[in-house]
Amino acid sequence: MNTTIPLFCRVALALAAPAFLTQCAYEPVTRANAANASRADISGDARAALEDLYSRDPGARKLGRSAAGILVFPHITKGGLMVGAEAGNGVLFGRDGATKGYYQTAGASYGLQAGVQKYGYVLFLMSSSEVSQLNRAAGWEVGSSPGLVVVDRGIAGTITSRTADRGVYAYVFNQKGLMAGLSFKGTKITRIQPGR
């Protein structure tokens, strides 16, 4: 009896793995994460990360003044060997600087990847419609947003209040580790209610 898995089964499994892992990353993990998360720690780390970004990049501060909401994930860890996963907690600050909610970012990926990486990111949500997308029942898939712009030094200099009246602008900071590249594809943001 031949126990070798046929090639088409292996291909189908490889294609289905990210979707399966992505779903596993949310419900049970989200509940466990929220129960062990600290509101004060998340808020404090997020405010410090945002202020650090503002001190290094005046363009980010300009976006922050115009944004309807600023979603800050100060500490994200990503690791993988062929199959990768990433996760971190963050906070949404409103136009007035007040905390509007706590969120988890999580994602799974499949492909040529190996190593561990740590980083943070800020999403500047330029209109109230982008802010309202955060609280959809199944969460918000960042990479599927047509208005997402990942800001680098070249783009930062061209952003003005006229060009940044809508969409989502992402700043990635403090990248450390062995993994090359970064993508928001497969990343999902879900609201959490920290237990403490």
Rank of each mutant, 00 (worst) to 15 (best):
T187E: 15
M82F: 09
P194L: 13
G120F: 08
S145C: 11
T163M: 10
R47Q: 12
Y102P: 00
T4Y: 12
L92T: 01
A138Y: 06
T158P: 00
R56N: 09
E86C: 02
G101T: 01
G143W: 07
K118W: 00
S128K: 12
T187C: 09
L134R: 05
R166N: 13
R31T: 11
T105M: 11
P146K: 12
H75S: 08
R39N: 04
R153T: 08
A108N: 09
Y119L: 15
G139D: 05
Y110V: 05
P28M: 14
R61Q: 14
Y110T: 01
F93A: 04
D152Y: 09
R56A: 12
D52C: 04
S43C: 04
Q117H: 04
R10K: 15
S161I: 04
A16E: 06
H75M: 06
G195S: 13
L13D: 11
L81F: 14
G101W: 01
V149H: 14
A40H: 03
D57A: 12
N135W: 03
M82G: 01
L15H: 05
I70G: 03
I159C: 09
V131H: 06
L63D: 02
F184S: 08
Y54D: 05
S43Q: 11
G139L: 08
K188G: 05
G97V: 00
A98E: 10
L125W: 03
G44Q: 07
D52S: 14
R47D: 07
R166H: 14
Q117T: 08
V131L: 07
V122W: 06
S132L: 13
D57Q: 13
A16C: 13
A25P: 00
A164T: 06
A106K: 08
L50Q: 10
